[in-house]
């Protein structure tokens, strides 16, 4: 029983990572029909940037968090103005699925290169926001950072779900992804929704990186892996339902932990890629490999 509970705790923690990146990917895809393949790099910037500011810059942790989140938000805004605005709003450049794929993939490469130049190749972990020994309830042990990670994922999923379900603004955001012309003729500024949600999800990913990095540590190369696992979770949510992406992420995380604990850790990666291949076969359109999404 003890082993099961501790595998459950580990699975929920890693599942929260799947879930939050899946949610970030899903909500922006819903608005823009574009996968943000740089979402993991924003988390990497949050984690490494805040750790560097505290450890090397000597800044208080709270101030470091504020500076890093502001910097990530600014980076996302600049990318929107320089690339997405020009490509989508001004109609300059190509709009094919391959071209669009390279917009955020290119951003990922740029952020990775910039992080390597600024912070080197070391492993960074931000200070723990909630420090102390692991929490224990009978045989159930979970790290405090893990509790924060799960809580942030669940709260983010619930907030995004409620926003899309209960507010006119959320419905309007969905309409942008359904029909740009249809949204503009009723006065919805689709460019503003695309920009605001891109920035918000970048900042959320960075915050998540700060909260999670005490557990795993981050290097300049951490971003693409995080984006990839987000793709898996978002794939289970039809790339449009952030709440479901968090739930799917938690389930995948627990399944992976159980498989690793009771069978072999070798199979946990196999599970991840099997899921990804399943998406490619069953839902190819969401990865841009088949027909356009409806």
């Amino acid at each position: 029983m003890s082993e099961f509970l501790n595998l459950l705790a580990a699975g929920l923690t890693s599942g929260a990572i799947y879930g939050i990146f899946g949610a970030c990917l899903a909500v922006w895809f819903r608005v823009s029909n574009v996968l943000n393949l740089a979402v993991g790099d924003f988390a990497m910037l949050g984690a490494i940037g805040s750790a560097w500011l505290v450890q090397t810059g000597g800044l208080p942790f709270g101030l470091g968090i504020v500076i890093v989140l502001a910097g990530v938000g600014l980076t996302a805004w600049v990318f929107d103005r320089l690339v997405l605005h020009v490509a989508f709003d001004r109609g300059v450049g190509a709009h094919g699925i391959v071209s669009v794929f390279f917009y955020t993939f290119g951003l990922s490469l740029v952020l990775e290169g910039a992080a390597r130049a600024l912070f080197g190749t070391d492993v960074y972990g931000a200070p723990s926001i909630w420090s102390g020994p692991a929490l224990a309830i009978a045989d159930f042990h979970v790290q405090r950072a893990g509790v924060l990670v799960i809580a942030l994922a669940v709260v983010s999923g619930l907030v995004l779900w409620a926003y899309l379900r209960f507010t006119v603004s959320g419905r309007a955001a969905s309409a942008c992804g359904e029909s740009v012309i249809g949204s503009r003729i009723v006065g919805i500024d689709s460019a503003k929704f695309r920009r605001r949600i891109f920035i918000a999800t970048a900042v959320l990913a960075a915050l998540f990186g700060i909260v999670e990095s005490p557990i795993t540590g981050y290097t300049y190369m951490s971003g693409p892996t995080l984006s990839l696992i987000g793709v898996v979770a978002a794939g289970f949510a039809a790339f449009r339902k952030p709440g479901r992406a968090v739930a799917a992420g938690l389930v995948i995380g627990v399944a992976e932990a159980m498989l690793g604990g009771y069978v072999s850790t070798s199979y946990s990666d196999v599970l991840l890629y099997a899921i990804l291949f399943g998406i490619i076969i069953l839902r190819p359109e969401v990865l841009g490999l088949g027909a356009e999404p409806a």
Binding site: R165, F166, T167, V168, S169, G170, R171, A172, A175, S183, V186, G187, I188
Partner: peptide, 12 residues
């Protein structure tokens, strides 16, 4: 959503 310009700040 036809009424978006009037109702965007309220609940659906």
């Amino acid at each position: 959503l036809g009424s978006y310009s009037r109702t965007r700040r309220i609940r659906a």
